[in-house]
Design a protein around this nucleic acid. Sequence first.
DNA 1: ACTATTTCCTGGATGC
DNA 2: TGCATCCAGGAAATAG
Length: 287
Amino acid sequence: MPELPEVETIARGLAQRVTGDVIESVWLGSKPEPLKSPAHLIAETLENARIASVHRQGKHIVFELEHDGAPRRKSRSKRPKTKTAETDRAQWIVHLGMTGQLLVTSPDADLAKHTHAVAKLASGRELRFVDPRRFGRLCVITGEQFEAGGAEPLDVDLETFTRLFRGRKTPIKSALLNQKLLRGVGNIYADEALFRAGIRPRRRASTITRAQFEKLYFSLQQVLKEAIEAGGSSVNDYVDSNGDPGSFQFQHRVYGREGEPCLVCRTPVKRVVIAGRSSHYCPKCQK
DNA sequence: ACTATTTCCTGGATGC
DNA sequence: TGCATCCAGGAAATAG
């Protein structure tokens, strides 16, 4: 499942491969469409757009788009008076949900089942959105800057991080997954960060000490950085924009290791369900 | 303002 | 072998 390190890997790959390319046409193929903006608006915004850059925000992939030259929309009531050679900016936002993939392919590569969108690029390649479980979403933004929820885990400072959680009665695991507080952390990295910090996932955020928050802060940043370094975790479906898996699943210490010995103390790893999500921890190392 | 629960979706695993 | 059931989980919607 794509979380921050996987989305970062995909965004970096895309940035490397499609920056400067131009989207010539768009096909939106499935019903119901996995769209958060109307299909015509997405098609209209993407077509003839130049991809100026690609980056990540939380679990969202953000394409910065530019439209050069002639006005492309008739229904824009008031434009700034400098009408000539103006650059129109927009953003294309992709959320991959559970099983979404964004792939750069050759046009004659087999069309995978559950391909919901295809953008043809001027370079001759295609950018394809594939998502079997259909939790992924596409949308476009014009006129404002996309802002996805809470703080970026790798940018936030310790003081702000601690303030996000202090006083909350919810289990720390749930709080870490709350994208309105911190964006980009999902089930795998929440469990891995809590293990490294020695905190049980069920611990109420309000009972965690400052010293423990500090440990959690550094543990989370460390595990996210290591995972990015490894190209993310491929547990089920995840592959990067080139179709390649990551390797961080081999460095998981608790996630997916129920019943297996803790790598520190050999105590069997436990799995419990918190807020409907499986949560893995070592009952001896985590308090 | 918070928190907890339900819902969406399909492929793979499991059980009889 | 076949069919039904369960499970995975991000985040929006709903309920309390």
